[in-house]
Design a binder for these strands. Structure first.
Length: 839
RNA sequence: GCCCGGGUGGCGGAAUGGGAAGACGCACAGGACUUAAAAUCCUGGGCCCCCAAAAGGGGCGUGAGGGUUCGAGUCCCUCCCCGGGCACCA
């Protein structure tokens, strides 16, 4: 019988027993793996995520918890539409077909999901509540529509959230994005910035430190001062963290996107130049703007008034100023900010030194660069001789008293742009009425269904393809019953996934998003497992949405995920053709002197080891692997290769080891002796309890790779064990099958039944160890002479130094190394070692 | 540039309240079984040196250099390299 036959047998056994259904009658444990986007094939990278979750779920099950371990599908998204555009399949059909495949594969993998709770975000029963959530935010003024410069991907023809722009590139198609002005829907995550930051403290120690760090950086709190520079009838507000340098201001710079520019254009004699510059800047990608050799800008010939000196300050427009951060206007202090320094050099502006370093010559420094450290104020009127820190407070106070400034905390995080100009997403439940303006779709009319069919799936120049469907677009205002139009943008799929963990608790509730008392029972997620790449996307959105629901009294806690485990990637080697931009299959590669070439066209190929992905063509499809080798082999291979949080490369080598291990396990239980005698073997029992102890410790630290190593040691021991016909040995075999069960559940169930049991191995509780078997009477400890290991001695466990030395004196080591020499020092560490210093 | 991780055999990786470095596995070599191969089983192994060889013995070894200590992969200092995150954030 091969592994997949064994697996089929026990999977139906578990199914018939309804083993992994939520029971609801005892202490709960909610273990959740980040749900997948159902596209292409499931591969080893997916399985790693689910295998880790399954190990924990099965252990908790054996520890008699009411385990909630569900699975679902993050099913809206771009690839479905691309498939529709390219192959003329309906996105829905494409998606549900993939879901079908994913579900079947996961069932074959034998992951202990409660399939009755399966959800799919593209299902109207689900997205009804995504829309309901939108309306909740809208009513709380946390969803708003605004015309704004936003990131736009020319290739994907849609806007993107800041979180989806990686290094200035679209996270999906890797092309550089530009800024464009659109009217878009936003979620006001900035209103929760401080709480999202503060509550990270509650997660410390339970979430990986680097995820917490990433969120801190992303929220990017910084304390500073807003300063008002009078400009004509109004003010230009700047944000600075270094108000102590305010006497060094020699210009003001405004980001090209800033709306105030329209005002300035009314007066500026340099209108044409400004318009040219703004247009040029906006056409540049962020990367182009950032990597310009020189600072660029344009003078407006307009001036603002310095709030403390009343000096006239020239106003520039410059694209090194980020519209996104602070007020989008900066005060230029060339002497104490490197960027302002470069700008001033470029435009020949005054460099006014106002901060003196504690050591060193300021004049010398300023010949080359700005002096950015704290120091002592000079050229600053009444604030001279103050240190920077004090000056920041004093100058802020002064500005506040003049009503020309105030202390302010600002954040780097921007509001979450959730509109997408796409068909295959959750429709935004909003109606535009000629009379009433923006109107919510009434709750009883939810869900706003996607039209079943469109002429074309292609987005049209910044609009969703839904715009093409008059039946969808044209509607009646729910308030005044006059003609109205529907919002045609759909929501970012991260909105769908920001609350899915709740729905698993109450997946079929059609009256409310979740039953509050069920939520109280099962939330928070006790263990959440997924990739670190979601640190500042999904994981920050989900925390935000959950807090909104908490404030609304819909949920009972304020953080959704108690413990977070971020697993490492599964990598795979592949050969990349850098000329034709594609992966070359292994049988077309030839190696010459450590370099790789294409067999046919002789192009030199790059050998790469990267994350498994369809686009790289380096995936190991799970379904095929399961058929050939079975799920347990895959699980052992994945978990044994490296610690779960670490990346590892998938190779055939790790498969052969796993296969051999499991085959040996099966063989050990194949031709069992009659268990007809009884023999309490101390060696056997102490080994057993030692292993249970070690395995329990390693499990609690998620070190599944060493747990499997221990199981292998245990197997080696059992294979060599002499008394295989005793009742005690049978008991050890039983315990071994239980220890193995979370990691290789099918093989464990098989061997457990070989012993004659008829219930499931998972109906046993996870083994405990007993200290009394761990106590030894005698112990072997190392002996070091002058720091070098020279042998070992056996001593009674409780031996003191005198006894140890006495034993040493009767040993070969003494004869050989110590006799006739003078002992100058003895270090005896009880139970551990003996170290002798001689002369 | 700033902030995190991390450098251990041919390879994946064990071992950090300082106490036998290399668990476990892969690959490899020798042997058994086989007509043969695969599979399986047994044995071996960090590197180097002495010795004809074996037995035996010695030295060196956790990125590099220095320090603390009877004893350092583990602690301290300096440096190098790799991976990840952030970055014109005012």
């Amino acid at each position: 019988m091969n592994f997949s036959e064994i697996e089929k047998k026990w999977q139906s056994f578990w199914r018939e027993k309804n083993l992994f259904k939520v029971k609801g009658n005892k202490k709960k444990f909610y273990v959740l793996e980040m749900f997948p986007y159902p596209s292409g094939d499931l591969h080893m990278g997916h399985l790693k995520n689910y295998a880790i979750g399954d190990v924990v779920a099965r252990i908790k099950f054996m520890e008699n918890y009411d385990v909630l371990h569900p699975m679902g599908w993050d099913a809206f998204g771009l690839p479905a539409e691309n498939a529709a555009i390219n192959y003329n399949i309906h996105p829905r059909d494409w998606t549900y077909k993939n879901i079908e495949t994913f579900r079947e594969t996961l069932k074959k993998a034998g992951i202990s999901y409660d399939w009755d709770r399966e959800i799919s975000t593209c299902d109207p029963d689900y997205y009804k509540w995504t829309q309901w959530l939108f309306l909740l935010l809208y009513r709380k003024n946390l969803a708003y529509k605004k015309r704004e410069f936003v990131y736009y991907c020319e290739n994907c023809k849609t806007v993107l959230a800041n979180e989806q722009v990686i290094d200035g590139k679209c996270e999906r198609c890797k092309r550089e994005v530009v800024r464009k002005e659109f009217e878009q829907w936003f979620f006001k995550i900035t209103a929760y910035a401080q709480r999202l930051l503060d509550d990270l403290e509650k997660l410390r120690g339970k979430w990986p430190e680097n995820v917490i760090k990433q969120q801190e950086n992303w929220i990017g709190r910084s304390e500073g001062t807003i300063v008002k520079f009078k400009y004509r009838d109004g003010f230009l507000d700047v944000f600075t963290t270094r108000v102590d340098t305010i006497f060094g201001v020699s210009f003001i710079s405004i980001a090209p996107e800033h709306p105030i520019i329209k005002e300035i254009l009314k007066y500026s004699p340099n209108k044409e130049e400004i318009e040219k510059y703004v247009k040029l800047s906006l056409s540049k990608t962020d990367i182009e703007r950032k990597t310009q050799r020189k600072k660029t800008g344009v003078f407006t010939f307009e001036y603002a008034i310095h709030p403390l000196t009343n000096k006239k300050i020239p106003i520039f427009i410059a694209d090194y100023v980020l519209y996104n951060y602070g007020t989008g206007i900066v005060m230029g202090v060339p002497a104490h900010d490197q960027r302002d320094y470069e700008f001033a050099r470029e435009f020949d502006l005054e460099i006014i030194p106002v901060i003196k370093p504690l050591e060193g010559n300021l004049g010398e420094i300023l010949k080359e660069k700005a002096f950015e450290d704290y120091g002592i104020l000079i050229n600053s009127g009444e604030f001279n001789n103050l240190d920077s820190k004090t000056a920041i407070l004093e100058i802020s106070k002064k500005l506040e008293s003049l009503d020309l400034g105030k202390r302010q905390v600002i954040y780097k995080i921007r509001d979450w742009l959730i509109s997408r100009q796409r068909y295959w997403g959750c429709p935004i439940p909003i109606i535009y009425c000629e009379n009433c303006g923006i109107v919510e779709v009434p709750e009883e009319e939810l869900p706003v269904l996607l039209p079943p069919k469109l002429e074309s799936w292609k987005p049209i120049g910044g609009y969703s393809p839904l715009e093409n469907d008059p039946n969808f677009v044209n509607t009646i205002c729910p308030k005044c019953k006059s003609k109205a139009k529907r919002e045609t943008d759909t929501m970012d799929t991260f909105v769908d996934s920001s609350w899915y963990y709740l729905r698993f608790i109450d997946p079929k509730n059609n009256r409310e998003i979740i039953n509050k008392s069920l939520e109280k029972t099962y939330m928070p997620v006790d263990l959440y497992i997924g990739g670190v790449e979601h640190a500042v996307k999904h994981l920050i959105y989900a925390r935000f949405i959950y807090k909104v629901l908490y404030d609304e009294g819909i949920v009972n806690y304020d953080e959704p995920f108690n413990e977070l485990f971020t697993q490492g990637l599964v990598l795979k080697k592949f050969y990349w053709d850098p000329v034709n931009y594609k992966t070359v299959s292994e049988d077309l590669v030839i190696e010459k002197e450590g370099r790789f070439y294409h067999k046919e066209n002789n192009i030199e190929l790059e050998e790469k080891i990267e994350m498994m992905s369809k686009s790289r063509g380096n995936i190991v499809p799970l379904s095929k692997f399961l058929q050939e080798n079975g799920s347990d082999v895959a699980r052992i291979a994945i978990l044994f290769a490296a610690p779960p949080e670490q990346n590892f490369e998938w190779t055939d080598a790790i498969v052969s080891g796993a296969k051999r291990f499991l085959t040996r396990v099966l063989n050990l239980y194949q031709n069992l002796d009659e268990f007809n005698t009884s023999f309490e073997d101390k060696e056997l029992l102490s080994f057993l309890h030692k292993k249970i102890k070690e395995i329990r410790e390693e499990i609690s630290k998620f070190k599944f790779n060493t747990v499997i190593a221990k199981l292998m040691e245990f197997l080696n021991f059992l294979e060599d064990y002499k008394y295989k016909n005793t009742i005690e040995y049978k008991e050890v075999l039983r315990i071994y099958s239980i220890l193995l069960a979370p990691f290789a559940p099918h093989v464990a169930e098989e061997i457990y039944h070989k012993l004659g049991y008829e219930n499931s191995v998972f109906e046993n509780s996870f083994p405990e160890y007993d200290e009394k078997y761990l106590i030894k009477e005698e112990i072997e400890i190392p002996v070091q002479i002058n720091g070098k290991l020279r042998g070992t001695v056996k001593i009674p466990i409780e031996a003191n130094e005198e006894i140890a030395i006495e034993i040493l004196k009767n040993s070969e080591i003494y004869e050989k190394y110590i006799k006739g020499k003078e002992i100058t020092k003895i270090i005896f560490v009880p139970k551990r070692m003996l170290s002798i210093v001689i002369r």
